[in-house]
């Protein structure tokens, strides 16, 4: 399986990745619906958008209290994606190459994926009525020969790299500057891996929360459902047998 390694020890927050993403995916400049003062404030604070939106599938977050705290935010392309599991329209697919992609033709704009994503990634596009998010450049990586995702290609400091997941994890572990790894099987199963020299909570990165109730429901739904159907069949059979027994009794054992 393929993965993307985001090495925060090399990231210079130049935002080439954002520009490359917008160019490749033909996204509108993130100025729609914003006032001039909002746009100016946005650029002054982070040289662009600071939150994911329908036009920004990746951003570099910024902590106004500590300019050294930042990270490239984007879809984690989880192995067991909550967005896929909670889409009533089956519009989101997890591909073997690691990418989690929304099919705009199938998306009904239900937005359960927006609420269910533990990283707050999918964004609803009001104008088109569909959910948008990073595709891991599915249209690039599936070409023959496969291209790197646009953000990887554009990164001048090679902070974002793309390749086989195990190889990327090995590379991150071998780097003495990297102290913390999240994703790609390290703490979390995903096709995006973060590597950092400082703890993730220091840079404002929120790890996925595991909730007990949905976790339990997911495990029991099919066995419990099958048991309910078996129980229903048993009750129905008992009712039919009892009815037959009563009929035999009434007819004096002739039936």
């Amino acid at each position: 399986m393929k993965a993307k390694l985001i090495d925060l020890t090399r990231c210079t927050e130049c935002r080439s990745c954002i520009t490359a993403c917008e160019n490749w995916n033909k996204l509108e400049p993130h100025t729609i619906g914003k006032s001039a003062s909002e746009i100016k404030a946005s650029y002054e604070a982070s040289n662009g958008a600071w939150e994911l939106s329908k036009e920004d599938w990746t951003v570099v977050t910024l902590d106004p209290n500590n300019p050294r705290n930042f990270y490239k935010k984007q879809c984690m392309h989880c192995d067991d994606p909550m967005c896929v599991k909670n889409c009533p329209a089956n519009a989101i697919t997890k591909y073997d190459n690691g990418a989690v992609v929304v099919d705009p033709e199938k998306c009904e704009g239900v937005r359960l994926c927006v609420e269910a994503c533990p990283f707050g990634v999918p964004v609803f596009d009001e104008s088109e009525g569909v959910v948008k998010k990073c595709t891991l450049c599915y249209d690039r990586i599936t070409q023959n020969p496969g291209l790197e995702p646009a953000c990887v290609k554009a990164c001048p400091s090679k902070a974002v790299t793309f390749g086989e997941r195990d190889a990327l994890i090995g590379k991150a572990k071998a780097n003495p500057n990297i102290k913390y790894i999240y994703g790609g099987g390290e703490e979390y199963d995903s096709s995006v891996i973060y590597a950092s020299a400082v703890p993730f909570d220091q840079i404002g990165f929120e790890k996925a929360q595991i909730h007990g109730i949905p976790n339990l429901l997911e495990k029991i739904v099919n066995p419990l459902g099958a048991a309910a159907v078996v129980g229903g069949v048993a009750i129905a059979a008992m009712h039919a047998l009892k009815k037959r027994e009563n009929e035999v009794k009434k007819s004096g054992g002739k039936k």
Binding site: N86, P88, L112, H211, L217, L224
Partner: peptide
């Protein structure tokens, strides 16, 4: 709430 959003589809399946 995130836990509720994640529970809707499995609960509906059940």
């Amino acid at each position: 709430p995130q836990w509720l959003a994640q529970s809707v589809v499995p609960l509906r399946a059940l």
